[in-house]
Design a protein around this nucleic acid. Structure first.
Length: 263
DNA sequence: AAGTCCCACAACCGCGAGAGA
DNA sequence: ATCTCTCGCGGTTGTGGGACT
């Protein structure tokens, strides 16, 4: 038995919202609130929409003080550092960015920021400035955020310690990263030719800068770029192969085996 | 100019958590 | 303790528009 549908699918309109629907929904909520029941709300207003759809529309689009697009460098940094710390907990990340919605941030990450990071990872030495490198400053945020995130009056108090080790005992907050070493090993050693002759990563001596030992990240205080990128990197592994293939040959200057330590 | 591809964003879907009966 | 209902979240898909060929 599957889960009961939240609404009568046959009588529910799907797809883009019309201005009329927006107006109805916005006017009602501004006047009456949601009444604590999204499911019943569309019926009250006379909208042929699913309650969940109404909720999403309100939260992501109609709610006052919503900002769309135009993410600043600072917002980039916050998103990146929080993503490194807690993974794809978009609602928590959104809570740190006034006016931004989780959906917006998720889309932004998936479509742009992730690529931006990947690009930086693969461009040797060209991402040393904050301007070019979303993570060079996020590293600072990351290391400094430890204190604020643990303070009880901060919304971040519920966040795990950003210096969390990826492997080891306890529940992993880094969904999917548990498999990282195996996945990466296959990627790297299954594609020796692609990675051959790589010497540095992001302009750093990754052999010395990296913190990875046996696939685990050191849980120490240091948040070097090597450390940070190794946290983020697993998320991008599936895309790396494609990206590397599109790179010019002389761009491949990253010695993966050095960076990730002896196997 | 037309067709195709790619990207960004909006919206949907399914699941887990939590509250209340 | 269990069931039902709703909310909220994160992943995924659909679509429109711009870029490219």
């Amino acid at each position: 038995m599957g889960r009961a549908p939240c609404c009568d699918k046959a009588n529910v309109k799907k797809g883009p919202w019309s201005p009329e629907e927006d107006t109805k929904l916005k006017a009602y909520i501004e006047q009456n609130g949601t009444g604590g029941n999204w499911i019943a709300l569309p019926q009250k207003i006379g909208l042929k929409r699913c309650g969940k759809s109404c909720r999403l529309r309100w939260l992501n689009y109609l709610r006052p003080n919503i900002k769309h697009g135009g993410f600043s460098e600072e917002e980039d940094n916050i998103i990146c550092s929080l993503y490194i710390s807690i993974g794809s907990r978009w609602s928590i990340i959104a809570a740190q960015l006034p006016g931004r919605t989780d959906n917006d941030i998720k889309n932004y990450w998936n479509t742009r920021l992730k690529k931006k990071l990947l690009q930086c990872l693969l461009l040797d030495g060209s991402c040393n400035s904050t301007q070019d490198h979303p993570y060079s400053s996020s590293v600072n945020i990351l290391s400094s955020s430890g204190a604020s995130m643990n303070s009880t009056d901060s919304p971040c108090s519920q966040l795990p310690n950003p210096n969390y080790a990826v492997s080891g005992a306890g529940p992993s907050i880094y969904h999917g990263l548990e498999e990282f070493p195996v996945e990466l090993h296959e990627l790297v050693y299954g594609n020796q030719q692609q990675f051959g002759g790589l010497k540095s990563f992001n302009g750093m001596d990754m052999a010395n800068g990296g913190y990875v030992t046996n696939g685990a990240i050191s849980s120490g205080e240091s948040t070097t770029w090597g450390n940070v990128s190794s946290l983020v990197y697993p998320q991008l592994v599936s895309e790396l192969e494609t990206c590397l293939q599109s790179l010019p040959q002389d761009h491949s200057s990253f010695e993966v085996s050095s960076y990730f330590g002896p196997q």
